[in-house]
Lab assay of single mutants.
Amino acid sequence: MDALKSAGRALIRSPSLAKQSWGGGGRHRKLPENWTDTRETLLEGMLFSLKYLGMTLVEQPKGEELSAAAIKRIVATAKASGKKLQKVTLKVSPRGIILTDNLTNQLIENVSIYRISYCTADKMHDKVFAYIAQSQHNQSLECHAFLCTKRKMAQAVTLTVAQAFKVAFEFWQVSKEEKEKRDKASQEGGDVLGARQDCTPPLKSLVATGNLLDLEETAKAPLSTVSANTTNMDEVPRPQALSGSSVVWELDDGLDEAFSRLAQSRTNPQVLDTGLTAQDMHYAQCLSPVDWDKPDSSGTEQDDLFSF
């Protein structure tokens, strides 16, 4: 819950932080000083300027060897085509990944977070970031790969997607708890209302004896509580940590079903599988986004697919 609360507080303090972009060759504004600060901008989305290598189908939802083989196929196909790589912007948030063309600003792909089953910074092609997700059109699994400016960037994108998945799962947990509370309150309110109706004398007997209905007592009954809980029953509950912020979080049926399955089948359902080692994760978390744009010590960066 700490990640969720800190993310909400950060967004309320400075929503404009989320509009910064990394990996864009110096076009961005001043960047936060450390990885923790940038992680807090996830709610509205972190932007990464990358190059799209392509996509291939895979048979399993996750796995280092599986993704490595898929990336190898994608890279080989991209090299064989001889075409310049498409420059894209990857927007990562707890909602998922939005992929747009840098030149036309046209939407290429919009992947809900619950469809993503794996992401990684490839070991062999260490400047490549990739994720595996279920197609929104059918049940097939797709591996999408992107060329980053350097290994640090690939690791940073991988960690960002993993963190977005974690925050999304926490949102789901909060929403589920809130819905259970509202359902319980609604049920209790309905029981109270039913009890009051059972003990209320029939209207005919009131008229016969000349008694008047006590409207004041009726007004004191917990009807307002019942209506408050039943009027918006169809509205999706939102985490309290975000009250007053500009973010509107809505959970669709697909996300609810997917996270429910994860909660039942996995020990740590909030953790998205990645190909990063503990050492890689520690190294990337210690980086400032400013470091992502620094040239690798191995030599001059080449803006070309064939540089790796």
Rank of each mutant, 00 (worst) to 15 (best):
D2S: 01
K5P: 04
A7C: 13
A7V: 05
G8L: 00
I12S: 15
I12G: 15
P15I: 06
P15C: 01
S16P: 09
K19M: 13
K19S: 09
S21G: 05
S21H: 07
W22E: 05
W22C: 13
W22R: 05
W22H: 09
G23E: 11
G26F: 05
G26K: 10
R27K: 13
H28T: 10
H28R: 11
R29G: 13
L31W: 09
L31N: 07
P32I: 14
P32H: 15
E33D: 13
N34W: 13
W35C: 12
T36F: 11
D37N: 13
D37T: 08
T38S: 15
R39Q: 03
L42T: 15
L43E: 10
E44D: 13
E44M: 08
G45R: 10
G45Q: 09
M46R: 10
L47H: 01
Y52E: 07
Y52S: 07
M55Y: 09
M55E: 12
L57V: 07
V58W: 02
Q60R: 14
Q60T: 13
P61Q: 13
E65R: 08
L66I: 09
A69P: 03
A70W: 05
K72E: 04
R73L: 03
V75N: 00
T77R: 09
T77Q: 09
K83D: 06
K84I: 05
Q86T: 14
K87C: 15
V88K: 00
K91G: 05
K91H: 11
G96E: 08
D101E: 14
N102T: 09
T104N: 01
N105G: 04
N105W: 03
L107A: 02
I108W: 03
E109I: 08
I113N: 01
Y114A: 02
R115W: 13
I116C: 14
I116F: 05
Y118G: 02
C119A: 02
C119T: 05
D122M: 00
D122G: 01
M124Y: 05
M124R: 00
A130E: 00
Y131G: 00
A133L: 11
Q134L: 12
H137C: 13
N138L: 09
N138Q: 12
N138I: 08
N138P: 09
Q139N: 15
L141W: 12
C143P: 00
F146P: 00
F146Y: 09
F146M: 00
F146T: 01
L147V: 04
L147D: 03
C148S: 13
C148P: 00
T149R: 10
K150T: 15
R151L: 00
K152P: 06
K152F: 03
Q155D: 13
V157G: 00
T158K: 05
T158M: 05
L159F: 15
T160S: 15
A164F: 10
F165W: 04
F165L: 03
K166R: 12
F171A: 03
F171W: 14
W172P: 06
V174A: 01
S175C: 05
K176F: 08
K176E: 03
E177C: 14
K179P: 05
K179N: 07
K181Q: 15
K181Y: 14
A185C: 15
A185W: 08
S186V: 02
S186T: 05
D191Q: 06
L193R: 11
L193Y: 02
L193F: 01
D198A: 09
C199K: 09
T200V: 02
L203R: 08
S205F: 02
L206C: 06
L206D: 04
A208R: 04
G210Y: 06
L212W: 12
D214N: 09
E217A: 14
K220P: 11
A221Y: 04
A221D: 05
A221W: 07
L223C: 09
V226W: 04
A228M: 02
N229F: 02
N232V: 06
V236A: 14
P237Y: 10
Q240H: 13
A241M: 10
S243V: 08
S246G: 13
L255E: 07
E257T: 06
A258D: 01
F259W: 03
F259Y: 03
S260Y: 13
R261I: 11
L262P: 05
A263M: 13
A263K: 12
R266N: 07
N268M: 10
V271K: 14
V271G: 02
D273E: 08
G275Y: 03
G275A: 10
A278S: 06
Q279N: 11
D280E: 15
A284S: 07
W292Y: 11
W292H: 09
W292T: 03
K294N: 12
D296K: 05
S297F: 09
S298A: 09
Q302I: 10
D303H: 06
D303M: 07
D303W: 04
L305F: 10
L305V: 06
